[in-house]
């Protein structure tokens, strides 16, 4: 399924709107928004510098091998290129996008549909493929004589893999390995978001799977909006997890439940709270969660984000991170990518 007007909650997708409308843009243009307003220049410049860095770091095979490598990383990097508004098939980054997508596809286990070697990778790769699905033209790739599945096929397989893993899991969520019997909210976030994105892209995802996962999250969310990690021990404050919780509720369209309100409130009342470790990871999720949950809060927080990123961007365009510059850069760029849209989507 290729044509969609309604894409997933992730803002990145919206950047592709011009393509969906059938407008074929060959040359780079100022990414414009539905409203016609232009992204501020300092943000644009930061973002482009980051993209240049990623482009340079991409290996000839299309992947990004940093201290963390794998289809999840590749997927996140691909999403950065997708989010900027350049045409993924004919734009200046088309080559990067295509190679990146191919790298992800290549990393998938043909029989199980498992991307990479950890459910983190699986989740992010699924998300990336869901975003690429329909935007990236995979019909006429000349591979290296290899047989790559289409993005759609790959996605379907991946969804099945995730669902299968969930079925085996007594908590109804996911952990590092597809065979894990326990779960944590961090890995589950990656997988669940990927599933929801795939669903929004038109891939069939069983409702009960989503429900079960949401139930897991509800069980892990406290009244104050804190989200636990893995059920052992208490709730320490983690803006990252709170953001993940809030985001999954939002894009699963469960904004009705009190846990959603609690997490959103927690986030918007603690905009300046520093990340409890994992700065870029937190940033990545918090941007989206705020954007979905409280637009005004997002605006305020975004100002701080832009200021922080301006100060911390390296001269080569990269952003340092706990897991290396590739992940640090891609997650930071994606948190910035929400600026490429000013109007919140799916405002109900």
């Amino acid at each position: 399924m290729t044509s969609n007007m309604h894409r997933g909650s992730l803002v990145l997708l919206l950047a592709l709107t011009p393509i969906l409308c059938g407008v074929d843009r060959a040359a780079a243009q100022l990414p414009e928004l539905r409203s016609g307003e232009v992204v501020p220049r300092d943000i644009r410049e930061m973002y482009e510098r980051g993209l240049k860095y990623l482009a340079l770091q991409q290996s000839p095979e299309g992947g990004w091998q940093g201290s963390q490598g794998g289809p999840g990383v590749d997927g996140l990097c691909v999403m950065c290129f997708l989010a900027c508004g350049e045409d993924p098939n004919y734009g200046i980054y088309a080559d990067n996008v295509q190679k990146g997508v191919q790298a992800v596809l290549r990393a998938q286990n043909k029989s199980t549909g498992y991307y990479g070697n950890s459910m983190y990778h699986h989740g992010f790769a699924m998300l990336a493929m869901a975003e690429a699905y329909g935007a990236v033209d995979d019909r006429q790739w000349s591979g290296h004589g290899e047989q790559l599945p289409s993005i759609g096929a790959s996605l379907e397989l991946a969804v099945r893999s995730a669902v299968t893993s969930q079925k085996k899991n007594q908590l109804g969520a996911w952990r590092y390995s597809p065979d894990s019997n326990d779960a944590d909210t961090s890995v589950s976030g990656a997988v669940l978001v990927g599933l929801l994105a795939a669903r929004n892209a038109g891939i069939e995802v069983p409702d009960e799977s989503i429900d079960r996962a949401i139930a897991y999250y509800k069980s892990m969310t406290s009244d104050s909006g804190q989200v636990a990690y893995a059920g052992m021990g208490g709730f320490d404050n983690s803006p990252a997890r709170i953001s993940i919780g809030s985001l999954v509720y939002a894009i699963a369209r469960r904004k009705d439940i009190p846990q959603y309100e609690a997490t959103v409130r927690n986030l918007s009342e603690n905009l300046e709270a520093p990340a409890n470790g994992y700065t870029e990871y937190t940033r990545y999720y918090r941007a989206q969660a705020l954007f979905q949950g409280d637009y005004e809060a997002w605006q305020k927080w975004n100002r701080l984000l832009v200021r922080t990123l301006k100060e911390s961007q390296n001269p080569d365009g990269s952003f340092q991170g706990d897991f290396g510059p590739e992940l640090g850069t891609s997650m930071s760029l994606l948190s910035l990518a929400l600026n490429y849209r000013f109007l919140p989507i799916y405002e109900r």
Binding site: G233, N276, G277, Y278, Q320, D322
Partner: peptide, 22 residues
């Protein structure tokens, strides 16, 4: 000081706060 925090159970606890390069 955050580094010294045993932090989350079961998870990698050492969290180097990202030192902003600038």
């Amino acid at each position: 000081d955050d580094e010294a925090d045993p932090g989350d159970n079961g998870d990698a606890a050492v969290a180097d706060a990202a030192d902003q390069p600038g």
